[in-house]
Simulated scan of single mutants.
Amino acid sequence: MQKKNPNSLPQYTDTEPVPGLNRSGSPALSRSVQAQIGQRLRQFYETLALGEQPVPDRFIEIINRLDEVKREKQQS
């Protein structure tokens, strides 16, 4: 049996549906849960901005992919 890495994020492609969204496009999470997630994300980003933690490699990969797509769109 293969162990899961708790720090690894699931890999999604652009064609897969977004987890947590109903087919109607409305969020499946309550406002309370959304607020808690938002608060934790803000705290995490604040520690990154202050240099208390290094930027995760996954974030750098995502930013690089977005930059690449942006350059490709500008060239066409």
Rank of each mutant, 00 (worst) to 15 (best):
R31Y: 15
D67K: 12
S30K: 12
S24P: 01
G38Q: 04
F44Q: 02
S30V: 08
G38K: 01
L41Q: 11
Q39H: 09
E52Q: 10
I62C: 12
L29I: 07
E46D: 09
S30Y: 09
D67C: 10
E61H: 05
S24C: 10
S26P: 00
I37C: 04
G25I: 14
I62H: 14
R42P: 03
S26W: 02
V55T: 11
E61I: 04
R58H: 14
E68M: 01
Q36W: 14
S26R: 11
R65E: 11
E46W: 08
L48P: 00
S32Q: 12
R31L: 05
R23I: 02
L66I: 15
I60M: 12
S30M: 08
R31S: 06
S24V: 04
E68H: 02
I63F: 12
E46C: 09
E61N: 04
A49I: 05
I37G: 05
G25D: 01
V69Y: 04
L48Q: 02
Q39T: 09
N64E: 11
Q34I: 14
Q36M: 12
E46F: 08
Q39K: 05
R42C: 14
S30H: 06
I62E: 13
Q34R: 11
I60C: 05
A35T: 06
L29Q: 04
N64F: 09
I60A: 09
V33I: 11
E61P: 00
L29R: 03
T47N: 07
V55L: 15
E61V: 05
R42T: 15
P56D: 14
Q43K: 12
E61S: 04
I62M: 14
G51Y: 01
G38R: 02
S24I: 04
Y45A: 07
A49V: 05
E46Y: 07
E46L: 13
E61T: 09
Q39P: 00
V69F: 03
T47Q: 12
F59Q: 10
P54V: 05
I63D: 10
E46G: 07
R42A: 14
L48T: 03
Q34N: 06
L66K: 06
V69D: 06
Q43A: 08
S32H: 10
G51T: 11
Q53V: 07
I37A: 04
D57M: 10
Q36N: 13
L66Y: 14
E46H: 11
L48F: 02
G51R: 00
E68D: 03
R58Y: 15
E61W: 08
L41K: 14
S30A: 09
L41A: 11
S24M: 09
Y45P: 00
F59K: 06
A49T: 05
A49R: 05
I63H: 04
S26A: 07
P56Y: 13
R40L: 13
Q39I: 10
L29C: 07
S26Q: 10
V33T: 10
G25M: 08
P54A: 06
Q39Y: 06
P54G: 01
L66F: 15
D67H: 09
A49N: 03
V69N: 02
F44P: 00
A49L: 06
P56H: 03
G38T: 00
Q39M: 11
V55H: 13
S24K: 10
D67L: 13
G25R: 01
E52S: 06
L29V: 07
A35D: 07
I60F: 02
V69W: 01
Y45L: 14
A49W: 15
